[in-house]
Structure formats: C-alpha cells, structure tokens
C-alpha cells in the first residue's frame, strides 16, 4: 500500500536553530498516528510544514503521490489536509454556525461534497454536539466547546488527513473521553495525525507513535514498542531503565 503522506529530508531552520532536521516520515492511509516528544522537539514546526503554514528550508513533502512542497497552505487544504490549531482560533465574533459554514461551503464549491450548506453545517455541529448552540457567537462558547467547534470545522473540510495539534489541552476528563470517541469516529473516514502530550490519550488512540527529539525522529513504532524503547524513556520520559 502506498503511504498517504511522505516527507524526505524535511528541514526548517530558524536563524541558527534547526527546528526540524532532515525528517523522513511516512503515514499510511487510515492510520491514527501520534507525534510525541519534549517541548521544543519540533513537533508543531513539523506539522506546520506539512500543512503549509511555514515553508521548509529544504526537503520534500509528498501527499497522495503528488509533490506538494511548493503548494500554498490553502491549496493543500483543498487537497484534503486539514489542520486544527493548537491555540483555539475560531472566529470569535461569528456564530458557531458561520464558523462551520465557512469550511462546508468551501468543500461544496470544490465539488468534494454535495448538498446544501445548511445541511452540511448542521451535520457537523450535531456530530460534535454543538447543534443547540449554532447561533451563539463562537467567542461566547465555553473553552471545551470552542475546542469541539475547532474539530467540527476540521471535519467539515472533509479531510483525508486531519492534523490535530494538542486537541485535549485544557479539556476536562469527561470531555477527553468524549473526544477519544470522536477521533475514533473520524478515523473511519480520514487519516489522523495527532500531536499530544497526554500519554493515556496517546496510548488509547494511536496505531503507531513517532517520537521527536531535537528536530529529528528518535523512534517510531506501536505504542508497546515505544513504551519499551530505552532511548525514548531517557529523552522523553526522563527515566533511566
């Protein structure tokens, strides 16, 4: 089977700092992949490179067999790479409805889905349990609901690859349980790339885990393999076996 996403020698320097340093990465369709690593390991930079929010210093990104290294971010979104922000950045002054309508109408004009905006919006809001808050300004939703709205917007893009950057940050335990269910649901129709600090969430969700350290991939494998990896324990968990 051909990978959905591959990067070859992907690097990005900020001044003298190599935030991402020669990363070779492959992601199979249908996978839930977690990316973990200590703060400053280059995880967010890596997914920003994949989503096109920043340009690589060198290297190559291939999505579904096509070289997308030089595509602008919006064009990658249209190919099916959706990114949800680490810091919640819904449109605070627009209603929840309008927030979701923006991605829905996008996929309609692309011809990636059919039907009316209204039906698509309500479907995405219902899936995330926000339907009864459709006409509230997004800025007035609770923090947990704003994170869900962010996910609803990502879903409404009908992504083939959904990148979630620390989605459970700031959520209560009960909200996290719901969230895990939601991601499993999403994974039926999309590949998921997840940056996450919360290890129980990672262990429950991920098919495979990639560990970043100092801009490079330190280890990769199933949750069990990564858990047993001594290097990972030294670099990330801070314990020596």
């Amino acid at each position: 089977m051909m990978p959905l996403l591959t990067t070859k020698g992907l690097s990005r320097n900020f001044g003298g700092l190599r935030a991402v340093d020669g990363v070779d990465f492959a992601l199979m369709p249908g996978e839930i992949r977690a990316v973990i690593g200590p703060n400053g390991a280059g995880k967010t930079t890596f997914v920003s490179l994949v989503s096109g929010r920043i340009q690589p210093s060198s290297g190559m990104i291939v999505f579904d067999g096509a070289d997308i290294t030089n595509l602008p971010a919006y064009a990658r979104v249209r190919l099916g790479i959706a990114y949800t922000f680490q810091i919640t950045s819904v449109f605070a002054n627009l209603t929840a409805y309008d927030n979701v309508a923006l991605p829905v109408q996008r996929t309609l004009t692309d011809g990636r889905s059919k039907g009316a905006v209204h039906a698509g919006v309500m479907a995405a809001l219902e899936r995330t349990g926000l339907a009864d808050r459709a006409h509230m300004p997004a800025g007035q939703l609770s923090y947990g609901h704003q994170r869900l709205l962010e996910v609803a917007m990502g879903l409404a893009l009908k992504p083939r690859l959904l990148i979630l950057d620390e989605p459970t940050q700031g959520l209560a335990d009960s909200e996290i349980d719901n969230f895990i269910g939601l991601v499993r649901e999403i994974a039926k129709s999309a590949t998921v790339l997840l940056i996450e600090h919360n290890m129980p969430v990672v262990m429950q969700l991920a098919d495979r885990i990639t560990v970043f350290n100092a801009g490079k991939i330190l280890a990769e494998g199933t949750p069990e393999q990564v858990r047993a990896n001594a290097e990972v324990q030294a670099a990330y968990l801070g314990t020596t076996p």
Partner: peptide
C-alpha cells in the same frame, strides 16, 4: 457565501487560509 468569506478574512486571515481559501 462570498460575503461570509470576506468577513472571515477580516476576523482572522490566517485561519481563513487554513480553511482552504485563497485569501
């Protein structure tokens, strides 16, 4: 729909890009 996109650009252009719009 176009008007909605314009307002979205006013509110947060970066986010609008990440919804697939050529702002």
């Amino acid at each position: 729909r176009y008007g909605r996109v314009l307002v979205a650009i006013r509110e947060n252009e970066e986010r609008t890009k990440m919804l697939g719009y050529d702002t």
